[in-house]
Simulated scan of single mutants.
Amino acid sequence: MKAIIIAAGHGSRLLPLTLETPKCLVPVGGRAILDHQLRAIEAAGIEAVTVVGGYRIEQIGEHLAARPGNGGGRLTTELVFNPFWAAGSSIGSVWAARAALTGAFVLMNGDTIFDPAVLAAAVTDARRGVKLVVDRLDAAEPDDMLVAVTDGRVRAVGKGLDPDRATHRSLGIVASTGGGAYADALRAVIGGENGIHAFHHAIVDRLAGVDAVAAVAIPAGAPWQEIDRPDDIERWRRERGS
């Protein structure tokens, strides 16, 4: 299995922290967001990572090259450039990493911190095909990627999903055991009208329409936090004590 991290965007809502630093390298609890994710990836037994960069990608490359054990450790990293990072949405980064979609993979947004147990749940889930990691929705927050789940299956995904239909929120983590379904859906969505401006969750939503996505619930008590604004960093520090 290969991991793919989408880390191309500017992160304008984190300004001024991202004025000269890519969002994935913003420190949270003494560690860059990217390093939180790489730690979880290693703990899940994954040995290869593709990082998709865009904004200030040279800094991401320098950070990966400076990692302890780089070149000799178990985890190998590859950096891929998304040339459309400033013009499109997150689906462009998935397209830039499409070569990594031929086998088993786990894909994640580059701005989310989570306990390693969250990623392990996605990797070890025994169901075949495409899976989306979700958390039970108590009260929707602004910019939540809403998910409708019934009987362990994802039925619909989207920020514009009817709140009365939404049961969960997405963590932005997609796993696949292989096969061509996800790549086929990617081509269909990005090739559609305004496809380059779609969130990558539109791929999952398309597959959900044909009952092709399983919902993976996060383990009880496993923390996670999307880092969109400076307040999110403070919330992680406050709740985790770091």
Rank of each mutant, 00 (worst) to 15 (best):
A181V: 13
H201D: 15
I196G: 03
H197N: 15
V106A: 00
I113S: 07
G152C: 13
A208P: 04
G195L: 11
V94A: 06
I190A: 12
T167Y: 11
F81W: 11
L146F: 08
I91K: 00
T124M: 00
L119R: 03
R127M: 03
K159Q: 15
A198N: 14
A181M: 11
Y182D: 05
R128V: 05
A96S: 09
D205H: 11
F81A: 14
D164A: 15
R153T: 03
V106C: 00
F114N: 03
A121H: 00
G178R: 04
R98Q: 11
A202P: 08
R155F: 06
V189C: 13
R136I: 08
R165N: 12
F105C: 00
A120T: 07
G129N: 02
P83M: 02
D115P: 03
D205K: 06
L132W: 00
W85D: 05
W85G: 05
L171F: 12
A202M: 06
V118A: 01
A86Q: 09
L186I: 12
V149E: 10
P163I: 10
A97N: 03
L137D: 10
M108A: 09
L119H: 01
A86M: 06
A208D: 08
A183W: 05
S90E: 03
G178M: 08
V133N: 01
A86L: 06
D125H: 02
V133E: 01
S93H: 01
M145W: 06
G180H: 11
F81E: 14
L161H: 10
S170G: 13
V149G: 12
R127D: 04
A96T: 05
I173N: 05
L132Q: 01
S90C: 04
H168G: 14
G152L: 11
G158K: 06
G192D: 14
D184G: 15
I203R: 09
R169C: 11
P116K: 02
D164G: 15
G180V: 11
S93F: 04
A183F: 07
G172N: 09
L171H: 14
G178Y: 11
A117H: 04
A166T: 05
E141G: 10
W95P: 01
R128P: 02
K131C: 00
T102L: 04
V134R: 03
A87C: 02
R153I: 05
A97R: 06
T102G: 03
G160N: 15
A97L: 06
I203N: 13
V80R: 12
D111E: 04
A208S: 07
S170Y: 09
G192R: 07
A96C: 04
A100T: 02
A87F: 09
A99M: 05
P116D: 05
T112F: 02
V157Q: 11
A121P: 01
L161K: 11
V123L: 00
D125C: 01
T177H: 11
G110I: 07
S89K: 08
G179L: 09
V134Q: 03
A120I: 04
V154W: 08
L119V: 02
G192L: 10
R187W: 07
A181I: 08
V189A: 13
A100V: 02
G192C: 10
P116Y: 07
A181S: 15
W85L: 07
G152M: 09
W85V: 03
G178A: 10
L207R: 05
